[in-house]
Structure formats: structure tokens, C-alpha cells
């Protein structure tokens, strides 16, 4: 290959694949299960590549080979007919052996991926059009709390998520940690995984669930166990009371302007259940189920007009004066 062509190809490939180890990639495993799956995937990939290349080579030789002696279509060579018959049969048997082998590889991988650990940390996740409700459940009820759209887990410890749906079917998928599992109306599914390394892993709803299926993401934040414990203790507490008058005004407006009809903020009078829990919303990394990174600006943009950012989502646009909006944002920001 001329050098120029090669450089161009390499360039093209790097340009295209620059982001391959992106934010939610099955090729960039950070968990025990995703690691196993990638391993299985590579075995399949290599065998598939070999089979395809073999077929292409045979096809190529078939095309380039010298022509048959006779040009009468029915004037066939007995030896070739019989030989090729045996060869086809042999290849058929080889295919049987390969697919049985692959089935075995697949099953072995499946066993590892779906292995159960009784001591797993248990979370319950309920899918909603188009956001995630997350329950941390513990033996004592005052250790249990609800949050949304963001899951924090300890590294190195198995996590079990119980999956349910409040409306249509969704699918829980964090490619860097493990494969997906559906959240099905009227059925309880579960999934276990273990994060190997600390980090923020993006997840996204994978089953088409209506208008805003594209914007039903979430973040899984894996923390070292002690840090996770601190977070959990903090998250378990009720919301901060606002420290300044603007914040207080925001808290009142949150009730007065109807937000509290849908949103719960523990420790306040806001107890709505239709939308995500906002008790510690200030600690989250994103707004509106992973649609925007969280900042005062994005929070404001969202509250000012949720239908612009995520058309069709179930939070209506609330009529707010701009000073009211500023107060609400200020309040929500403090909910850390």
C-alpha cells in the first residue's frame, strides 16, 4: 500500500473511532460483568472474522480458478460432483461443531454474568416515562430513601437492582458495567453487577418507551466504599433548610407555584409523587434524566421551559416571573 493511502486510512480510522472508549461503551468495561461479556464478544468476533475471510477466500478462488473443461451445462464431471458433495457435508459438520462450541462459550459467559450474590447491596429502580426512580432499601426504614436519575454504588461490591415499571416497558442499561435488563409492567426483574473502578458511568433506557425515549438517561457513580457510606448517610437525611431569604422565598414558591404537586422534597411540605424526588437535587450531575449537565443555568432553562428542552415530557411549563425563577433555582441549588 502506498504510504499516502495508508496514512489517509489510519487518519480516517482514528478520526472515526476517536471516541470509541466513550461514555457508555461495551468496549470499555469497568465492571466484572461487562468485562466477561467483552471477553465472550471477542471470542465470537474472532471466529466470525475467520469464517467470513474463509468464505471470501473460497469465493475469490472460485472466481479466479481456471474454467471448467466442458461448456455444456449438463456435461458434468462425476468426480467433482462427488468430491464437492463430501466437502459440503464436511463443512456442514464443521459448522455444527463450531456453533456447538460457541453455544458452550456463550453459556459459560452467561453463567458468570448472571451469577447471584446473596450479599449484594439492593436497590429498587422504577422506570417512568422518561426518568428513573431509585429506592435505596435497608433493613431499617429510616435507612431507606428515594432519589432519582442518579445511582451511587460502592466499588468492588455486588449491587442488585430490582427493576419495575410504573407505565410502559423500559430497559436499564449501563454498558460499561453490564448488559441490559427490561423493566416490565407487572413483572419484577433483577440484575446484578459489580463496578471494578470508581468513576461516572452513563446509562440509558434501551427499550423504546415513547416520545422521549432518547432522553431517558442516568448516571451511575461508583465510589470507594467508605465514600459511598458517607454519601449514603448524607443522602438519607432530609433536605437542607435554605439559609438565606432568597432560598426561603424559593421554598415557598416551590409550593406556591405547584411544583410540590409533583415533586417530593423530604423534610418539607413538598410531597408530590408524579415527578423525580428532588431532596438532594443539588448534588446531582444532570438535569432531566441525563439530558443536560446540572448547573444553575441548565436548571433555570429546564424549569423555565421543560417542553423546549425535552418536548413532550410530562413536566408542564409553569408560568413563573423571572425573579421567581431565580428564587426557585437558588433554593434547589442548595438542596445538597
Amino acid at each position: 500500500m502506498p504510504v499516502r493511502v495508508r496514512t489517509a486510512l489510519v487518519f480516517l480510522a482514528t478520526w472515526l473511532l476517536a471516541a470509541c472508549s466513550g461514555r457508555q461503551s461495551a468496549l470499555d468495561p469497568q465492571g466484572l460483568q461487562s468485562d466477561q461479556i467483552r471477553h465472550t464478544l471477542f471470542i465470537f468476533l474472532i471466529i466470525a472474522a475467520i469464517v467470513w475471510i474463509a468464505v471470501m477466500v473460497v469465493l475469490g478462488i472460485g472466481m479466479l480458478r481456471r474454467k471448467r473443461a466442458s461448456n455444456q451445462p449438463l456435461d458434468l464431471d462425476r468426480r467433482f460432483e462427488e468430491g464437492s458433495g463430501r466437502l459440503i457435508l464436511g463443512l456442514g459438520i464443521a459448522t455444527v461443531i463450531i456453533v456447538l462450541g460457541l453455544s458452550f462459550v456463550s453459556y459459560a459467559g452467561q453463567r458468570t454474568v448472571f451469577a447471584k450474590d446473596e450479599n449484594a447491596l439492593t436497590l429498587k429502580i422504577i422506570g417512568h416515562q422518561w426518568w428513573w426512580e431509585v429506592h435505596y432499601e435497608a433493613d431499617s426504614p429510616h435507612q431507606s430513601f428515594v432519589t432519582a436519575n442518579e445511582i451511587r454504588i460502592p466499588t468492588g461490591q455486588p449491587v442488585k437492582v430490582e427493576l419495575e415499571s410504573a407505565d410502559v416497558i423500559h430497559s436499564f442499561w449501563v454498558p460499561s458495567l453490564t448488559g441490559k435488563m427490561d423493566l416490565i409492567t407487572g413483572q419484577k426483574n433483577e440484575l446484578q453487577f459489580t463496578a471494578k473502578n470508581a468513576g461516572i458511568y452513563r446509562g440509558q433506557c434501551a427499550e423504546f418507551c415513547g416520545l422521549q425515549h432518547a432522553h431517558m438517561a442516568f448516571a451511575v457513580i461508583a465510589l470507594p466504599p467508605d465514600e459511598f457510606g458517607r454519601w449514603r448517610d448524607h443522602e438519607n437525611q432530609s433536605a437542607n433548610s435554605p439559609a438565606d431569604p432568597l432560598g426561603k422565598q424559593g421554598e415557598d414558591l416551590f409550593r406556591g407555584r405547584g411544583c410540590a404537586l409533583c415533586h417530593n422534597i423530604r423534610g418539607t411540605l413538598a410531597g408530590g409523587q408524579l415527578g423525580p424526588d428532588l431532596t438532594h437535587v443539588g448534588n446531582r450531575t444532570t438535569v432531566a434524566a441525563g439530558t443536560l449537565p446540572l448547573s444553575p443555568a441548565t436548571l433555570g432553562a429546564w424549569i423555565a421551559d421543560p417542553q423546549h428542552i425535552k418536548p413532550g415530557n410530562l413536566m408542564p411549563r409553569m408560568p413563573l416571573q423571572s425573579d421567581e425563577l431565580i428564587a426557585i433555582i437558588h433554593y434547589l441549588e442548595q438542596l445538597k
Binding site: 460457541l102 456463550s106 458468570t112 454498558p175 441490559k180
Partner: peptide
């Protein structure tokens, strides 16, 4: 067709 691969 492989279950583990398909979950991804």
C-alpha cells in the same frame, strides 16, 4: 444469539 452478548 448469544445471551451475554445480546444483553449488551
Amino acid at each position: 444469539a448469544s445471551v451475554p452478548i445480546d444483553t449488551q
